[in-house]
């Protein structure tokens, strides 16, 4: 129920503010304490380096017994992220554990940027490109990062 905000969420929010995760910003919405505006820095030595990616994160009513819903708002060329920004990541699905937190989820997503997995694709055309011509795929990912994820 939206009644009282569960202490778990309050606690996580406080900690995110006090000890921000390097390379990641997660701020609760002013009007909805279950909705977070997230910015993830593209990991260095990845095609997403120097990009800043905007995501939305929502804590459903069952949280932490069910996983947060996370989605990329910035366009990204990645075999495990589709056009709607949806992410294919096991810990957001069946491998969710209530001991995971907003910060660990976001770190995992950042790690996914460092280690794309074209064998388990969400975006099939991207994955195909990744498998058949990796250097071209990386080039495209870099180009998209420059076009969509770089703030002039």
């Amino acid at each position: 129920m939206a009644a009282g905000l569960p202490r778990r969420i309050i606690k996580e929010t406080q900690r995110l503010m006090q000890e921000p995760v390097p390379g990641i910003v997660a701020l609760p919405d002013e009007g909805n304490a279950r909705y977070f505006h997230v910015v993830v820095a593209g990991p260095s030595e990845s095609p997403y380096e120097s990009g800043t990616f905007k995501l939305e994160l929502f804590l459903p009513e069952e949280y932490p017994m069910s996983a947060p819903k996370v989605r990329f708002m910035t366009k990204i060329y990645h075999p495990n992220i589709d056009k709607l920004g949806r992410i294919c990541l096991d810990i957001l699905k069946d491998k969710w554990s209530p001991a995971l937190q907003i910060r660990t989820v976001l770190l995992s997503i950042q790690a996914l940027l460092s280690a794309p997995n074209p064998d388990d694709p969400l975006a099939n055309d991207v994955a195909e490109q990744w498998k058949t011509n990796e250097s071209k795929a990386i080039q495209t990912a870099k180009q998209w990062t420059k076009t969509y994820a770089t703030d002039n």
Binding site: N80, C88, L89, D90, I91, L92, K93, D94, K95, S97, L100, T104, V105, S108, I109, A111, L112, N117, D120, P121, L122
Partner: peptide, 10 residues
Amino acid sequence: GIMGSCVCKE
């Protein structure tokens, strides 16, 4: 053990 991976196949 919380590094995620893609789950699409499942």
